[in-house]
């Protein structure tokens, strides 16, 4: 009897999920509405003036459709490859350097000031140098991305390696671990939080690095598309290129959120 009463009491509670889901839909409708209103306003301004500087969403859409017929993919691929290769090399080198210097007093005393000195150069200012050295193709951009990513990963991993709780290392040492096992079982996973944090920061910077390099001198890539359109006063092309960069940026930040959620699931587990 009492059990059936409890069950009937439980029912409204499960229905409580309904209104909150409805609220979510409502928020989304509002967001779509605001988005449409902004685009409509832009369209109207474009029609009212000559549209020379503002272009119009309808023109941009037509431009985007034309690009997606074919020519855009090589640009997206170029920028994406520069980012991904640079991220991989930069993350690997930055992590290893951070771990080595973070766990070795001697190395850190000798090398860290040098690394800090190099980091003091605004990294984007290195782009012309790399272009002179390595030409107009992907290599100079990959190097730029690599260096940006390297520094971010290095400083994060270095901080993490210094923070590793020595008591955790003692625990496995008492069990008979070798120094190598200390590193594999404790130091490296303990730094994972910091490494993932570094990658998360580095992802948008990799996009910035790749497009900056392309804007300075390139034959392909979204940065090239952007600067090329600007050079020709093609405002529609400029906005269209920015739109694609925005999409790429959104994809990158979504990827970083997913990566963090997966790699650090033990942290989110309790939430």
């Amino acid at each position: 009897m009492s059990a059936s009463l409890e069950r009937s009491n439980a029912k409204p509670a499960t229905l409580d999920g309904g209104p909150s889901a409805a609220a979510g839909t409502q928020v989304m409708l509002w967001q779509i509405g605001v988005g449409i209103a902004l685009l409509a306003g832009w369209e109207a301004v474009g029609h009212g003036s000559s549209g020379e500087w503002t272009s119009r969403p309808s023109l941009i859409a037509v431009q985007l459709l034309a690009w997606f017929e074919g020519p855009i993919y090589q640009h997206i691929a170029t920028t994406a490859i520069e980012m991904i290769v640079g991220l991989m090399i930069g993350t690997a080198c930055g992590t290893v350097a951070g771990l080595l210097l973070g766990r070795s007093k001697l190395l850190s005393v000798v090398l860290r000031p040098i690394i800090v000195a190099f980091y003091s150069v605004p990294l984007v200012a290195l782009a012309p140098l790399f272009i002179m050295f390595f030409g107009l193709d992907m290599l100079p951009k990959i190097i730029l991305v690599t260096i940006v990513v390297f520094f971010l990963l290095f400083f994060n991993t270095f901080a993490g390696a210094g923070e590793v709780d020595d008591d955790l290392i003692s625990v496995v040492e008492l069990m008979g671990s070798t120094p190598r096992e200390n590193f594999q079982k404790v130091v490296a996973p303990a730094c994972m939080v910091w490494i993932i944090g570094g990658v998360k920061i580095a992802l948008p910077f990799a996009l910035v690095g790749a497009t900056t390099g392309e804007m300075l001198a390139a034959r392909r890539g979204l940065g090239f598309l952007l600067s090329d359109a600007a050079a020709q006063f093609n405002m529609t092309g400029l906005y269209a290129a920015l739109f694609i960069l925005m999409l790429l940026g959104l994809a990158v930040s979504e990827a970083s959120v997913r990566m963090e959620r997966y790699c650090l699931r033990w942290r989110h587990a309790a939430e």
Binding site: D165, G176, K185, W266
Partner: peptide
């Protein structure tokens, strides 16, 4: 002090000594 490895599940924490080469 609590010295469990936070990135390992309960079972993986208990197992760690058996994973060592020694």
């Amino acid at each position: 002090k609590d010295t469990l490895l936070p990135w390992r599940s309960a079972a993986d924490n208990i197992r760690i000594s058996l994973e060592l080469k020694c």
